[in-house]
Write a protein that binds this DNA or RNA. Structure first.
Length: 258
DNA sequence: ATGGCCGAGATCCTCGGA
């Protein structure tokens, strides 16, 4: 089973690219972030034609997450992270996998820039509440997969110019502390574990030929539990979609479990 | 040290992104 996670930077502006990706890469489950639409305007029929059922936590213009699946999903939950702004950043579901039940969590963590503003406070607060929720979920689910845009650069190796980002909301120590908390909790950054020394990125901004110059960062992640780790066949970042016409600024990360 | 570039949504500009 292939599970992909992709911040698409508007689902409606990205239909051709998403369809092309689905046809070539053939994910069974696709986590989308930044769909930038309300559920009532989500292209359900477009994805139904591609054999996906869609579950959507949307809002107008900003944020928004959805799970697309070729397999039946149960127990869909949205916005269960305590969030004083009530933004659409969380959707989860359960799926039967053999004799196990896997919890799938799709997340879009706030960006938090610029620092020294309410946006940064919101990010820290949101991460704190999200971490508490994951601690609770982890007690009930041995098989847990958390994927999404975490807006956290884990280490120097994960960004093209660490010095330039040392005061950035994606790289400040108190933000990276939440990455470490996930690890301490027993969750595994499966990309980094399988590729301990590889420099690979999941995001390149639209400015200044960033993609061509490979000025990117690794901020999209899959965290998994030990029980899932034993089932992992591969984990990779697929750079292709970022090279297309009218791309998202992020590219998909792909997890295969057997 | 600064500004690049996109998308959405309501006006020909702002906000948000990272």
């Amino acid at each position: 089973m292939k599970i992909s996670s992709w911040n698409v930077n508007s689902v409606r502006a990205r239909l051709d690219n998403i369809k092309n990706y689905i046809e070539i890469s053939e994910p069974d489950i696709l986590f989308l972030q930044e769909i930038k639409t309300e559920e009532k305007n989500f292209p359900f029929d477009f994805f139904k034609d591609l054999k996906f059922e869609c579950h959507v936590n949307g809002q107008k213009a900003y944020n928004g997450v959805s799970i697309l699946s070729k397999k039946k999903l149960i127990n869909i939950e949205t916005n269960i992270v305590k969030d004083n702004l009530n933004q659409a950043r969380y959707i989860s579901s359960d799926i039967k996998f053999g004799k196990n039940l896997i919890k799938l969590v799709n997340v879009y963590v706030p960006n938090g820039n610029p620092i020294n503003t309410l946006k940064y406070d919101y990010k820290l607060n949101w991460l704190s509440n999200f971490t508490k929720l994951i601690e609770k979920i982890k007690k009930n689910y041995e098989f847990l997969i958390i994927g999404g845009d975490f807006n956290i650069i884990p280490e120097d190796i994960d960004v093209h110019d660490p010095n330039r980002y040392k005061n950035d909301a994606l790289f400040l120590p108190e933000v990276r502390e939440y990455y470490k908390k996930f690890i301490q909790m027993g969750l595994i950054d499966i990309f980094r574990e399988k590729h301990p020394n590889t420099i690979e990125y999941s995001f390149w901004d639209y400015f200044a030929n960033s993609f061509k110059r490979n000025n990117g960062m690794r901020i999209d992640h899959f965290f998994i539990t030990e029980a899932i780790r034993k089932k992992v066949k591969s984990i990779s970042i697929n750079k292709k979609p970022r090279s297309k016409i009218k791309p998202s600024d992020h590219t998909p990360i792909e997890l295969i479990i057997t």
